[in-house]
Design a protein around this nucleic acid. Structure first.
Lengths: 351, 351
DNA sequence: GAATTGTGAGCGCTCACAATT
DNA sequence: GAATTGTGAGCGCTCACAATT
């Protein structure tokens, strides 16, 4: 169980191939100025010995490790059950394959987990870049990494996002489109169910909801707004609560919350979309299937992941904040499909 | 977006504190022979400047990176939905916190993903140790890491497990106990539903099933054995198929497969446990809740994760193969609870 | 002489430049 | 002189040992 006895180095390989360590280095790094026969000879020795360069030495001198880390501040169970994260991970992995980076997930939980991880993340010579999802449990970590000059990209919008490179989706305009859609279907009392205000995406989605109401000449009414945990249980509770206000439609800021809303309405004997129309937000490829099928604002999470990797690149010269568009996908929960006149509004992808 | 302008090094900190780099190094690494006032002075400078040692330099000279990697050869969606992985990750994270290592997950998918990751995993100066779950998609990776002399621990049993350190659970004896339990409840035609034979744990669980039959003087009958993918759909298919043999009990080698079995039986109008008794294998803390509640062989996945980290330690001097015990937890799917005489057989933990 | 500190060497690479063909 | 190769220095640490109190 000891390490490799033969501590192979560039020098050893060079000796075996009859060249200097420099030439071996050039072969390894695909430098052009190597004579073909020498290259072949060196490659043969590398192949035969199974030599692989020491990553630490390489990182020390080149100041690059090739490692991209995704920092996940959540309980593993929570994380692993969430289609948002699985899609995001998928996108980041694809992005890393494109750029030739190694992708790695650093799960941590709570203050203690963060304090263990933070020094390592912040050190030189460990990660080339960090991707972190914005949220109450990671916003200070993102701010710390930024302040320390680390190469960090936030996914979403951290509470303090000055000088933070980030990828986000058009939460506000997407929410406005969803709300406008409900208003256009002649719903008079359109409510909002979303996360508590420490989630910035919830703040933006509430703003979009209000934008749409104002745009059609209605007065936003806080009695039609409920906030809770951004998960199924939170959506369930908030919906039960808001029913006292007799809404005939709800824009629900995440699909898991919308699933909770559907459950609450079913329990109360209310039909969707007849009694209450529902529009959600997420539209994830692996999201749960609901009955009725949810009308929702689709966000391009896969592209978010890919783009985050792009933003991390040193040679990236695009904008430091990238906002990706969302689009409304019509399902059966909003009532648009019932009224044929509305059918042409559908511009979501087919499933 | 550039790196920190002040490239702090030990030398810089030493200069600021009026000592040599050696003394700063001693302070950082908690060496005893530093005068208290000097230590305080150096710590003050470190604190003020926010200095953190370069991990690559440290790794190069100490030959340790402090990084433990879990290699996950699976589609992310599959992975993230699986309570086995979430529990395992939880256990490994706890183990790493105990040993002061940084824990990181390397997700990859397919041949291409593996070929990208493998050189890095195999290199010196990158990971202190690799944990990999055994299975058809990772067994050759485990063998390669072993052959290259890397510090690797397998979870489960790889097809080629010579000289591979590993943590496993007592699949065979646990399966025998489950099968014996069904025989003891007077089931005459006890079938086996499990994974296809490239999954070694399935091979062991089938062996345990046969052990139990032989022990009570019955002839194992391959017509009562069905194998399919180790997931809900596979369990569903295999169970539909085995019903032609009219089993009155099934030992199902994983809980997801058992969930599929329950669905198949329900669809065929068969009652559990009256028509067919079911015992599963897994008993994960975050596993799905079934109706009826599943009798199952509980494996200690959290401890498996913790133990894997222990086995990775250089100073570990226990056995290289650790097999953790399983225990049968009685639910409502086997019929034991109905017959009061069997109640005392229950030795699972309460939920 | 014991406790504390500094110096030199070296980990295994990459890069600039000099030396060789 | 252009293409190819080797040498020297250095990345930022840790460790052994020498030097200092």
């Amino acid at each position: 169980m000891t390490d490799t006895p033969q501590a192979l180095t560039l020098e050893t390989i060079g000796k075996l191939a009859g060249v200097s360590r420099s030439t071996v280095s050039r072969v390894l790094n695909d430098h052009p100025d190597v004579r073909p026969d020498v290259r072949t000879r060196v490659e043969a020795v590398i192949e035969k010995t199974g030599y692989l360069p020491n990553q630490a030495a390489r990182a020390l001198v080149s100041n690059r490790t090739g490692l991209i880390g995704l920092v996940m501040p959540a309980d593993v169970v929570e994380l692993f059950g969430d289609p948002y994260y699985s899609t995001l991970v998928h996108g980041i992995r694809e992005g890393c394959e494109e750029t030739g980076s190694i992708f790695s997930i650093f799960p941590f939980y709570g203050e203690r987990g963060q304090s263990i991880l933070l020094p390592t993340l912040t050190s030189q010579g460990f990660l080339d870049g960090v991707i972190a999802t914005a949220g109450p449990r990671s916003d200070d970590l993102i701010a710390t990494l930024r302040d320390r000059g680390r190469n960090v990209v936030a996914v979403g919008r951290p509470a303090d996002h000055r000088d933070v490179r980030r990828v986000d989706v058009a939460s506000r305009s997407g929410s406005a489109a969803a709300t406008a859609h409900l208003c256009g279907l002649d719903r008079r009392r359109v409510g909002f169910v979303g996360p508590t205000p420490e989630y910035m995406f919830g703040v933006e989605r509430l703003a979009g909801y209000r934008d749409a109401l104002v745009a059609v000449g209605r007065e936003p009414d806080d009695r039609l707004v409920r906030r809770d945990e951004p998960n199924v249980a939170g959506g369930y509770r908030a919906t039960l609560d808001i029913l006292a206000e007799q809404p005939d439609a709800l824009f629900v800021a995440t699909d898991p919350m919308a699933a909770g809303a559907l459950r609450a309405l079913r329990e109360r004997g209310l039909s969707v979309p007849d009694d209450v129309a529902i529009v959600g937000f997420d539209g994830l490829p692996n999201g749960r299937v609901t009955d009725p099928q949810l009308t929702t604002v689709v966000q391009p999470v896969l592209e978010v992941g890919r783009m985050a990797v792009q933003l991390l690149r040193r040679d990236h010269d695009g904008p430091d904040v990238v906002i990706l568009p969302t689009k409304l996908r019509i399902g059966d929960s909003c009532g648009a499909r019932a009224s044929t006149s509305q059918q042409e509004m559908e511009h979501g992808e087919p499933r």
